[in-house]
Design a protein around this nucleic acid. Structure first.
Lengths: 332, 332
DNA sequence: TGACCGACGCAAATCGATTTGCAAGCCGGG
DNA sequence: CCCGGCTTGCAAATCGATTTGCGTCGGTCA
């Protein structure tokens, strides 16, 4: 039941004051070589490990950033987390991840808790919150990066170039002479679906086609959701010849729905996804999709935060756009 | 630049002392109805949010548990994280995840940092650490759950029933009259490969077959690693007729290797994985695999911790075994 | 030699909440 | 009327590190 070693214990053993121990270990003020050696020795002997909670209280820095995502089980987000980690770990920052199921209440609750915990920065991949929620819950003193969201100009933001991605995807289909193209989005106003929709719409317009309401269907961002939505779509009298999907999980669900319905992919139904999660290249047939560099997204979020936390940048909000590109496999 | 509201600010506005505010909000001592009302009103008006860092310093509780995994991008672990989250969130605990690439140094570094941060509990899915590492770095006062590891009797542990899983898988192959079965493991002494190997060996023995060294090949736990290892295996003069793989990613790599080599699955090569990650049912052909309930593993880890953190259990280490079962799809 | 400066050490204040110990006020029972 | 007990409030100690302010000591330069 040995209690933890404190800075006073080290000081006592080295025969100096806690002040000197602190300075010796942090190097913030010079310490005589002999004292330095004694302190290091004592700290070593006792196995001293500074209490970060106490340190954080005093310095008002926790060396922690919060990452809020809708669903950590969606393979896109672990890759984001990885990119973020790799961007900030070298500077001693750690990440706390919150998975919120895209529920506004949960998002707000987690955000609030992170503020109470004095995290140094926050990265939000949020679905259900609005700008006013963010500014209400997050004090201005905490740097905030908003990702994959079309809601704010008041904060740093990182976005994949969604419109360009779906536009390229849609053009790829049009170039094959396919014109009956539907877009499978997520719930209205939630997630990147709406921004991806614009690229599709644009490409269609510039081909002289005006998509009707029935060309745009809504799902959630899961395999099961995609399967069901596309299943219904395929049972229509005149189903489309191709689908542009708001993410890969929906697209994978679409492949399942096509198989269920005995529809050949890509011969009778071309399918394009978005994200390029690992599974996209593994499904059968391998999915044609828009690469959305999750790792890079996470990394850029980390960089924007570090700019404010370490470099001391204090200017106006900045916006980073991460390019996307189409990777053609076997479904379109 | 409004600075955060402190308990003293609330006290001042309510016309009471900080003590009373604390008691009013925590309910740890009764407070007169009038004072209670004034405190609540003041806290509300000011938007008071108690500083958790200060609270943690005083109470020695952070309401945080650390989860250490080798690779958060391996889809098995997000599911674990999810199960853990669901087990402990209701009691106000949050999770900090560390991804260590299975490097001993990284594992130890993260563990050390978590101790400095005074987490209330630690869950280790570790690859490279030994028992003595754990006891050295983690003080006895912090509850520790070791998962998927064969190294300790000194701590609570949670394991999937790995031997039973691979034994069932191997018997499934033997029952089809297949006897040339290889086992594709991970690096020696790292991860669950060795425990899964024993089930395979047992089943083979009880069928009167003694696997030779060349029947057991080593890889890492990734798709790329599995592809390469199995690719080499298939170029042998007499390749095996079936594979039992230490995890799904290896098995998926094996499917790719088979495709590369023009070997038909399952006709010429049967493949069985382990874990049943989401992608397992999505690959072509869908993977026959042993279900390793990640979510349940995480949940059980959380329960063991809470038992000590909340229920006050203080007895000897306990061991939970989560059952596994074979799910037959199309590769064996 | 005296003035000045840098190096170095320590006491004490600080971060913000929780909790202990003490005391005042109030009640009912003997 | 007094005492014990309950409620309620506050001052102060506490958690463990960091940092400010002050003072001492030695050395340098004029």
């Amino acid at each position: 039941m040995s209690k933890p070693v404190t800075i006073s214990d080290v000081a006592a053993r080295a025969g100096v004051s806690p002040t000197t121990v602190s300075h010796a270990l942090s190097g913030r003020r010079s310490v005589s070589p002999s004292a330095l050696a004694r302190v290091k020795q004592a700290a070593d002997d006792l196995g001293y490990r500074p209490n970060q909670v106490a340190s954080s209280l005093r310095t008002q820095r926790t060396h922690t950033v919060a990452l809020i995502v809708p669903d950590i089980a969606n393979p896109y987000y672990p890759a984001v987390a990885r990119g973020l980690h790799d961007a900030i770990a070298a500077d001693g920052y750690y990440t706390t991840i919150g998975s919120t199921d895209g529920e506004r209440e949960t998002e707000l609750g987690f955000l609030d808790e992170m503020v109470r915990r004095s995290v140094d920065g926050i990265i939000v991949f949020a679905f259900a919150m609005g700008e006013e929620d963010l500014t209400r819950v997050v004090p201005a003193r905490i740097p905030l990066v908003v990702a994959t969201h079309n809601l704010t100009n008041a904060h740093d933001q990182v976005n994949s170039d969604d419109p360009a991605g779906t536009e390229t995807a849609t053009r790829h289909l049009l170039a094959q002479g396919i014109t009956e193209i539907a877009f499978v989005s997520g719930p209205k106003g939630r997630g990147p679906g709406d921004r991806r929709l614009t690229g599709y719409t644009q490409a269609m317009h510039s081909a002289g086609i005006v998509p009707t309401a029935s060309d745009i269907i809504r799902s959630d961002y899961t395999v099961a959701g995609g399967r069901q939505a596309v299943g219904e779509l395929l049972s229509r009298p005149r189903p489309p010849r191709a689908l542009v999907c708001a993410n890969d999980l929906i697209a994978i669900g679409a492949l399942e729905a096509a198989r269920d319905a005995g529809v050949a992919v890509p011969a009778d139904l071309a399918v394009i996804g978005f994200d390029d999660v690992d599974a996209a290249s593994l499904v059968a047939p391998p999915l044609t999709t828009v690469v959305n560099p999750a790792y890079e997204m996470g990394r850029q979020c980390g960089r924007l935060l570090l700019d404010r936390l370490i470099e001391g940048y204090d200017g106006p909000p900045r916006s980073v756009v991460v390019p996307t590109h189409l990777i053609i496999r076997a479904t379109a």
